[in-house]
Protein backbone atom coordinates (compact mmCIF):
# COMPACT_ATOMS: atom_id res chain seq x y z
CA UNK A 1 0.00 0.00 0.00
CA UNK A 2 1.50 3.30 -1.01
CA UNK A 3 1.86 5.88 1.73
CA UNK A 4 1.98 9.56 0.93
CA UNK A 5 5.28 11.06 2.19
CA UNK A 6 4.87 13.15 5.33
CA UNK A 7 5.52 16.80 4.47
CA UNK A 8 7.60 17.56 7.55
CA UNK A 9 9.47 14.31 8.05
CA UNK A 10 11.87 13.52 5.22
CA UNK A 11 14.04 11.72 7.82
CA UNK A 12 11.19 9.31 8.57
CA UNK A 13 10.71 8.66 4.88
CA UNK A 14 14.36 7.89 4.30
CA UNK A 15 14.38 5.56 7.36
CA UNK A 16 11.40 3.64 5.95
CA UNK A 17 13.09 3.47 2.57
CA UNK A 18 16.33 2.25 4.20
CA UNK A 19 14.60 -0.48 6.23
CA UNK A 20 13.21 -1.98 3.04
CA UNK A 21 16.63 -3.39 2.14
CA UNK A 22 16.13 -6.07 4.81
CA UNK A 23 14.99 -9.45 3.45
CA UNK A 24 11.24 -9.94 3.68
CA UNK A 25 10.53 -6.32 4.59
CA UNK A 26 8.09 -4.50 2.35
CA UNK A 27 6.75 -0.95 2.62
CA UNK A 28 4.19 -1.80 5.34
CA UNK A 29 6.64 -3.63 7.62
CA UNK A 30 9.25 -0.93 7.07
CA UNK A 31 6.77 1.73 8.15
CA UNK A 32 5.81 -0.26 11.25
CA UNK A 33 9.47 -0.75 12.18
CA UNK A 34 10.29 2.92 11.71
CA UNK A 35 7.34 4.08 13.88
CA UNK A 36 8.21 1.52 16.52
CA UNK A 37 11.84 2.63 16.70
CA UNK A 38 10.96 6.32 16.87
CA UNK A 39 8.03 6.01 19.30
CA UNK A 40 9.10 3.37 21.80
CA UNK A 41 12.75 2.47 21.36
CA UNK A 42 14.65 5.68 20.82
CA UNK A 43 17.66 4.71 22.94
CA UNK A 44 17.86 1.24 21.49
CA UNK A 45 17.43 2.71 18.02
CA UNK A 46 20.58 4.72 18.68
CA UNK A 47 22.26 1.51 19.79
CA UNK A 48 21.16 -0.15 16.54
CA UNK A 49 22.56 2.74 14.54
CA UNK A 50 25.90 2.53 16.37
CA UNK A 51 26.09 -1.25 15.97
CA UNK A 52 25.36 -0.98 12.27
CA UNK A 53 27.94 1.75 11.73
CA UNK A 54 30.48 -0.16 13.84
CA UNK A 55 29.97 -3.42 11.95
CA UNK A 56 30.24 -1.65 8.62
CA UNK A 57 33.49 -0.05 9.66
CA UNK A 58 35.15 -3.08 11.23
CA UNK A 59 33.81 -6.22 9.53
CA UNK A 60 35.47 -7.14 6.27
CA UNK A 61 36.36 -10.20 4.23
CA UNK A 62 39.23 -12.47 5.29
CA UNK A 63 41.96 -12.13 2.70
CA UNK A 64 42.37 -15.90 2.44
CA UNK A 65 38.91 -17.44 2.83
CA UNK A 66 36.64 -14.48 2.05
CA UNK A 67 34.55 -15.12 5.21
CA UNK A 68 33.59 -12.20 7.47
CA UNK A 69 36.21 -11.18 9.98
CA UNK A 70 37.50 -8.11 11.78
CA UNK A 71 41.19 -8.89 11.22
CA UNK A 72 43.19 -9.35 8.03
CA UNK A 73 42.89 -13.13 8.53
CA UNK A 74 39.96 -14.88 10.25
CA UNK A 75 40.55 -17.15 13.28
CA UNK A 76 40.12 -20.28 11.18
CA UNK A 77 42.74 -19.25 8.65
CA UNK A 78 45.15 -18.28 11.48
CA UNK A 79 44.61 -21.55 13.35
CA UNK A 80 47.63 -23.86 13.33
CA UNK A 81 45.56 -27.01 13.89
CA UNK A 82 44.05 -27.08 10.40
CA UNK A 83 45.26 -29.04 7.40
CA UNK A 84 46.27 -26.40 4.82
CA UNK A 85 46.33 -28.93 1.96
CA UNK A 86 42.54 -29.25 2.02
CA UNK A 87 40.29 -26.41 0.88
CA UNK A 88 36.51 -26.63 1.15
CA UNK A 89 34.43 -24.29 -1.05
CA UNK A 90 31.04 -23.26 0.38
CA UNK A 91 28.44 -20.75 -0.77
CA UNK A 92 27.77 -18.88 2.48
CA UNK A 93 29.12 -18.39 6.01
CA UNK A 94 26.08 -20.35 7.24
CA UNK A 95 27.20 -23.32 5.12
CA UNK A 96 30.69 -23.03 6.58
CA UNK A 97 29.36 -23.19 10.12
CA UNK A 98 27.34 -26.31 9.25
CA UNK A 99 30.43 -28.08 7.92
CA UNK A 100 32.36 -26.94 11.01
CA UNK A 101 29.71 -28.42 13.31
CA UNK A 102 30.30 -31.87 11.81
CA UNK A 103 33.79 -31.89 13.38
CA UNK A 104 34.76 -34.21 10.54
CA UNK A 105 36.62 -31.72 8.39
CA UNK A 106 39.99 -30.35 9.41
CA UNK A 107 40.98 -28.35 6.35
CA UNK A 108 40.48 -24.69 5.46
CA UNK A 109 37.64 -22.96 3.64
CA UNK A 110 36.77 -20.57 0.88
CA UNK A 111 33.42 -18.77 1.08
CA UNK A 112 32.02 -17.69 -2.28
CA UNK A 113 29.30 -15.45 -0.76
CA UNK A 114 26.97 -16.64 -3.51
CA UNK A 115 26.76 -18.97 -6.48
CA UNK A 116 26.85 -18.68 -10.25
CA UNK A 117 23.33 -17.73 -11.26
CA UNK A 118 23.22 -16.63 -14.88
CA UNK A 119 19.48 -15.93 -14.78
CA UNK A 120 20.04 -13.43 -11.97
CA UNK A 121 23.08 -11.99 -13.74
CA UNK A 122 25.53 -13.34 -11.14
CA UNK A 123 28.78 -14.27 -12.83
CA UNK A 124 32.18 -15.64 -11.77
CA UNK A 125 33.59 -12.30 -10.65
CA UNK A 126 30.62 -11.62 -8.37
CA UNK A 127 31.54 -14.73 -6.38
CA UNK A 128 35.28 -14.14 -6.43
CA UNK A 129 36.28 -17.11 -8.61
CA UNK A 130 39.49 -15.34 -9.66
CA UNK A 131 40.33 -14.94 -5.97
CA UNK A 132 39.53 -18.63 -5.31
CA UNK A 133 41.73 -19.80 -8.20
CA UNK A 134 44.65 -17.79 -6.86
CA UNK A 135 44.02 -19.24 -3.38
CA UNK A 136 43.75 -22.86 -4.62
CA UNK A 137 46.91 -22.69 -6.72
CA UNK A 138 49.18 -21.42 -3.94
CA UNK A 139 51.15 -24.68 -4.08
CA UNK A 140 50.03 -25.88 -0.63
CA UNK A 141 46.45 -26.87 -1.45
CA UNK A 142 46.30 -30.36 -2.98
CA UNK A 143 42.55 -31.02 -2.90
CA UNK A 144 39.58 -28.70 -3.22
CA UNK A 145 36.32 -30.06 -1.78
CA UNK A 146 33.33 -28.52 -3.53
CA UNK A 147 30.50 -28.18 -1.02
CA UNK A 148 28.19 -25.89 -2.98
CA UNK A 149 24.46 -26.60 -2.78
CA UNK A 150 22.74 -29.32 -4.76
CA UNK A 151 20.69 -26.85 -6.76
CA UNK A 152 21.24 -26.29 -10.47
CA UNK A 153 23.14 -23.09 -9.64
CA UNK A 154 25.31 -24.88 -7.07
CA UNK A 155 26.00 -27.70 -9.53
CA UNK A 156 27.00 -25.28 -12.28
CA UNK A 157 29.28 -23.45 -9.83
CA UNK A 158 30.94 -26.70 -8.76
CA UNK A 159 31.36 -27.83 -12.35
CA UNK A 160 33.11 -24.67 -13.50
CA UNK A 161 35.36 -24.49 -10.45
CA UNK A 162 36.33 -28.14 -10.97
CA UNK A 163 37.12 -27.55 -14.65
CA UNK A 164 39.31 -24.55 -13.86
CA UNK A 165 41.14 -26.42 -11.11
CA UNK A 166 41.71 -29.47 -13.31
CA UNK A 167 43.26 -27.24 -15.96
CA UNK A 168 45.67 -26.01 -13.26
CA UNK A 169 46.53 -29.47 -11.94
CA UNK A 170 44.62 -29.25 -8.63
CA UNK A 171 42.40 -32.17 -7.58
CA UNK A 172 38.75 -31.29 -7.07
CA UNK A 173 36.17 -33.42 -5.28
CA UNK A 174 32.43 -32.98 -4.72
CA UNK A 175 30.60 -33.82 -1.49
CA UNK A 176 28.29 -36.84 -1.88
CA UNK A 177 24.54 -36.58 -2.12
CA UNK A 178 21.78 -39.06 -1.51
CA UNK A 179 19.47 -40.40 1.15
CA UNK A 180 19.99 -38.51 4.44
CA UNK A 181 21.49 -40.23 7.45
CA UNK A 182 18.76 -42.08 9.32
CA UNK A 183 16.53 -41.55 6.29
CA UNK A 184 13.98 -44.22 5.46
CA UNK A 185 13.37 -44.55 1.75
CA UNK A 186 9.63 -44.53 2.31
CA UNK A 187 9.78 -40.93 3.54
CA UNK A 188 12.50 -39.47 1.32
CA UNK A 189 11.43 -37.24 -1.59
CA UNK A 190 11.44 -38.87 -5.00
CA UNK A 191 13.99 -36.53 -6.56
CA UNK A 192 16.54 -37.46 -3.90
CA UNK A 193 15.95 -41.19 -4.32
CA UNK A 194 16.18 -40.84 -8.08
CA UNK A 195 19.57 -39.08 -7.75
CA UNK A 196 20.73 -41.61 -5.17
CA UNK A 197 19.99 -44.38 -7.68
CA UNK A 198 21.98 -42.62 -10.40
CA UNK A 199 24.88 -41.88 -8.04
CA UNK A 200 25.01 -45.38 -6.51
CA UNK A 201 28.44 -46.79 -5.78
CA UNK A 202 29.97 -50.24 -5.69
CA UNK A 203 30.65 -51.93 -2.37
Amino acid sequence: MARAPLPNAPGLDSLIEALRVLPGVGPRSAQRMAYHLLQHERSRAAQLARALAGALASVRHCSRCNNFTEAELCTLCRSSGRNPALLCVVETPADLSMVEQTLSYAGLYFVLMGRLSPLDGIGPRDIGLDHLLARATDGIVTEVVLATNFTNEGEATAHYIAEMLKARGVTASRIARGVPLGGELEFVDIGTISQAMLDRRGL
Binding site: L116, P118, L119, D120, G121, I122, G123, P124, R125, L129, D130, L133, Y160, M164
Partner: peptide, 12 residues
Protein backbone atom coordinates in the same frame (compact mmCIF):
# COMPACT_ATOMS: atom_id res chain seq x y z
CA UNK B 1 22.99 -12.91 -18.89
CA UNK B 2 23.81 -16.55 -19.62
CA UNK B 3 26.00 -15.53 -22.55
CA UNK B 4 27.74 -12.83 -20.56
CA UNK B 5 28.48 -15.26 -17.71
CA UNK B 6 29.85 -17.86 -20.14
CA UNK B 7 32.11 -15.24 -21.72
CA UNK B 8 33.39 -14.25 -18.27
CA UNK B 9 34.07 -17.89 -17.41
CA UNK B 10 36.06 -18.25 -20.63
CA UNK B 11 38.25 -15.36 -19.52
CA UNK B 12 39.26 -16.99 -16.24
Amino acid sequence: HTRAVLAELQDL
